[in-house]
Design a protein around this nucleic acid. Structure first.
Lengths: 301, 301
DNA sequence: CGGTGGTCATGCCCAACGGTTATCACCGCA
DNA sequence: TGCGGTGATAACCGTTGGGCATGACCACCG
């Protein structure tokens, strides 16, 4: 096994090899001449070989130094390339905003409006939409897949995030058209207490409780009819009669495809739809800009 | 300008990237896990980018890490190649002995005898003969061109060298056949005091004085007829009548080619021919071995 | 549910390193 | 024979890299 070097030592070595003059090389490297001398000697000691011959007539490369020089250059080049590659990624990341969402925000062209307003303010930015399963109530913020996200409140680990509410929508109940309650024009939440409910995955944390309307149940546990992690699963579960579920008014069109209907529900708080971000990203220009665009568009509606 | 990196950090990075597991990588690297964690974080800080995503499900490369990995490998490979190149040079140097000499030692197959005795004791060794100008009385020891050298005593900077005398030879005087003193079978040094002498270059130091027999002149400065730095120059200067010079008995055949003759000289000390080495190399096996071979061969004569 | 074993991160301490300035030894040169 | 210029050395000091002990978190399991 070969011992490794500091890139700096190789830079020093190459500089001296090029100048064949310690003092000048030290100037070029912006270090003092003794520091350079010491480092070169240390390098020679580590390699167990003299790299330079210093005598009255000046400094010259030894055979070993001659052998090392091209390799040293290669190492430095390779590292430079690596650093550049990282910098490139960083540059891309700085101008790319990943937007997470679970179900499409829909809601009458909300997304295109936000996008055009945002790109007007940040023409350099690239927006990348990421669709995230309901397993993650933060729609990609938690695991870093997204920089901003459209989410339903409340969020798990709420203290880690900032958000702006974009809409408050009443919650309706979705149920099969054949369900007895579908006969009524409107239902009271107390009528739903014994119904089996479709629930978000456990990993959704407080959001699961929220859509089960735990707060409105006075401590009585809900019956879980099935777990759902996507619009399609929800629709199928509803049609199959596995249970009912609450749904934001704006998402109703996604479910009422046939065999499923919704009714207003009395006695449950409205749902709040928000754009959210990680607190540590709160100052990033693109993140602020996207949230701002969301606010503006939401305020115009 | 890109900041440089320690090879170790890249090794650490690659190890973690391969294991995707800090603790295991730390074991493989023979460092503690905290040390590894800290170094990776420091590397990330220096690059201004996250290289790994650590979450509940384990460790994964980020985009930046993915971009860096191949470059990191390349850097390590390049360095490994460099270290190997140096090691190769070192290995060669360890088994190569550079023998310096000014005029050929001649003296009846001395050199081949030494060589065969030496290679018998050190079959792995390579002997390289270096012919060195008379400018350097140490025949290459001083500037590192030779590891051992055949020299005439005394040496300049004598304290830096060790040596073994191989031969004591009377000094004769070399002069043109036409020179008045050539008529005598033998000359006294006092007869030569006013003769112009051929002298070694100044850089030969005390050796120049020695061949001018300064000690035998009682403080009277010699007349210098010309400076000589090789056998050929000496011969030509003698034939041209620029001066006379002292010459070791063993070297007489090199000069008496025609038009030049030599005579014994009374009143000058004999010359001492030696094999010498740098004191700091006194323990190197090949150096000791070569000196030993010289002693043996010289003792047999 | 609470313990247990695993993960990576953090805090604290110490030796070694890398840099500084001041100085030395040496050489060529006016 | 001093003088400018070389590289090497010495004394000093802040930073770094390593270790151990420990913390925070999570998955698993009795």
């Amino acid at each position: 096994m070969t011992t490794d070097v500091h890139g700096r030592d190789l830079r020093y070595f190459v500089a001296v090899a090029e100048e064949l003059h310690f003092t000048r090389a030290a100037e070029r490297l912006y270090v003092s001449q003794p520091a350079l001398s010491k480092q070169i000697r240390a390098l020679e000691r580590r390699l167990g070989v003299e790299l330079f011959r210093r005598d009255q007539h000046g400094v010259a490369l030894t055979e070993a130094g001659e052998a090392l020089l091209p390799h040293a250059r290669r190492v430095l080049e390779a590292w430079e390339a690596g650093a550049e590659a990282v910098a490139r990624v960083r540059a891309v990341q700085r101008t790319t905003l990943r937007v997470g969402m679970s179900t499409s925000p829909g809601r009458g062209g909300l997304l295109p409006a936000i996008r055009s307003r945002f790109t007007a303010a940040h023409p350099e930015a690239t927006v990348r939409l990421r669709h995230v399963s309901w397993e993650d109530a933060t729609a990609g913020l938690a695991d870093g897949d997204a920089d901003v996200a459209f989410v339903w409140l409340p969020l798990p680990d709420a203290e880690r995030y900032g958000w702006t509410v974009l809409a408050e929508e009443p919650r309706r109940v979705a149920l099969p058209e054949t369900h007895p309650l579908a006969a009524r024009p409107e239902v009271d939440f107390t009528d739903l207490l014994d119904e089996p409910f479709l629930a978000l995955p456990d990993s959704a944390g407080p959001l699961r409780d929220y859509w089960l309307a735990l707060d409105e149940r006075g401590g009585r546990p809900p019956r879980i009819g099935a777990e759902i992690a996507s619009t399609e699963e929800t629709y199928e579960a509803l049609v199959a009669g596995l249970g009912v579920c609450l749904v934001a008014e704006g998402n109703v069109p996604l479910l009422t495809l046939g065999g499923v209907t919704t009714r207003p529900v009395r006695g449950v708080s409205p749902s709040r739809y928000a754009v959210a971000w990680r607190r540590e990203d709160g100052e990033r220009a693109l993140v602020r800009g996207y949230a701002e665009a969301c606010r503006r568009v939401a305020g115009m509606r």
